[in-house]
Computed example of a mutant assay.
Amino acid sequence: MTTQPHFFIEDSLLYAEEFFAGLGKITRFSGRTVTADDIKDADYLLTRSTTKVNEALLYKCTKLKFVGTATAGYNHIDADYLAERNIEWAPAAGCNADAVADYVISSGLNLANKYGFALKDKKIAIVGVGQIGKRLTKRFAALGCEVVQFDPVRAELESAFTSASFADVLACDFITCHVPYVKSGKHTTHHMFDKQTLLKLKPETILINACRGEVINNADLVEVLTAGHDLRVVLDVFENEPEIEMALLPLLEFGTPHIAGHSLEGKARGTEILYQILCQRLELPVEIKLQDLLPAMAVDHMVLTEKYQLSQRQFRALMNLVYDIRNDDVDFRLGLAKSPDSFDSLRRNYSIRRELTSLKIYCDDTLYPTFTNLGFNTSLIKGE
């Protein structure tokens, strides 16, 4: 009789029972308190970023075959140690990319409404053109924006991709950052935006950081903004989290506690991607789909009038129906006002939101490409 594989799964992985119950035995654990003894019987270890996967945790795992993290990032994984042990591992690449793209587009549309400009008139710089950057390129293009792509690493790896220069980035009206944190070397991202580069930005430039806090020198940003340089800054990430620079808060357009990727779909999609990877590894059919597990939206579809051209404010209204960054900004400020050291708890207790993919838009063939490229779940009006 074949022994069932034993899956040890961090307690924050959504829908783990639904995806993995048919594959073997499941034991849940807390990523914040887990010990080597807790998981020593694991055949498969599935985590999020709370679990630090290293020798100290795994040295008693004699049967471990695979480690998966239901996150796009993997700084919590000691890849060198896993390689020494010949243990396969994988992240859930792109699992929260749509959520982060929603965050950036919501920021852009709400700032456009606040300051009375047309987003399509802005030149957009996307710094880092991976899973998130590719989606944002498509979304901003759907809104009629000119897009500049900056990713010298990708340009070196892909002959078909051409990166703009960093000088081109600094000349744009709207800059959004989606790079990994690289502390040194040819393509360092540490303090890409310091006092020198921040002062080169045009007045009223929008600067968004939804990747790693160290990409922007926070002390320099406070100095530049306090001195009166007119930048419109949105930060989801900060240096030295959770001990953030509180002087930044009143200077920001929007601030949030590192939750740009924290949608229900984004978190659950991480579990689904690991399920798909393991089905392939175990040579099993993929029988469960995330879309069949997600709860219904309060408003789950909209039918748009045929042959009608939507205004920017109407796009914004549809965006905000699903996700409105202003609500998260208010909650962040109120939370820190009550307790200045609550950054981590605000992130941990964040009310998971939904993605644009959860709202079905029925429209004619004129609007169909725009809403599809913006990330909505789009269908043609019956008869089209």
Rank of each mutant, 00 (worst) to 15 (best):
Q4F: 13
H6G: 03
F7N: 04
S12G: 00
E17G: 05
E17T: 12
E18A: 12
E18H: 15
I26V: 03
R28V: 04
R28K: 09
S30I: 00
S30G: 09
G31L: 06
T33V: 08
T33H: 13
V34F: 12
A36I: 07
D37V: 08
D37P: 02
D38M: 13
L45K: 04
K52L: 14
V53N: 07
A56F: 04
K60A: 11
T69W: 06
A70H: 07
A70W: 14
Y74L: 11
N75T: 07
A79G: 12
D80Q: 14
Y81L: 10
L82S: 03
R85T: 02
A90P: 01
A93I: 12
C95N: 02
C95V: 10
D98S: 14
V104C: 05
I105T: 03
S106A: 11
Y115G: 09
A118T: 11
K120M: 12
K122L: 11
A125M: 06
A125Q: 06
Q131R: 14
L136Q: 01
R139F: 10
E146Y: 06
V148R: 00
Q149H: 00
A155I: 02
E156K: 12
L157R: 15
L157N: 15
S159K: 15
S159V: 14
S163C: 07
F166W: 08
A167K: 13
A171W: 09
C172D: 05
C172E: 00
D173K: 01
D173C: 02
D173Y: 08
V179S: 07
Y181W: 15
S184T: 14
T188F: 09
H191D: 01
L201Q: 04
K202L: 05
P203I: 04
P203Y: 03
I206D: 00
N217Y: 06
L225V: 04
T226V: 08
G228R: 04
R232Q: 09
N240G: 04
P242Y: 05
P242N: 08
E243N: 14
E243W: 06
E245A: 12
L248R: 04
L249I: 15
L249Y: 02
P250L: 10
L252R: 05
E253A: 13
H258D: 05
A260C: 07
H262N: 13
L264E: 07
G266M: 02
R269K: 15
R269H: 01
Q276C: 10
Q280S: 10
R281M: 10
L282H: 11
E287N: 14
I288R: 08
K289H: 15
A296W: 01
D300A: 11
V303T: 09
L304R: 05
L304Q: 08
T305G: 08
Y308V: 13
Q309I: 12
Q309A: 13
Q312R: 01
R313Q: 15
R313N: 15
N320F: 12
N327A: 14
N327P: 03
D329R: 05
V330L: 15
F332W: 00
L334S: 10
L334Y: 13
L336P: 00
K338M: 12
S339M: 11
P340R: 08
S345Y: 09
R348A: 13
R348S: 10
N349K: 08
S351W: 00
I352K: 06
I361T: 04
D365C: 06
D365P: 01
T370A: 11
L374N: 06
N377R: 13
N377P: 01
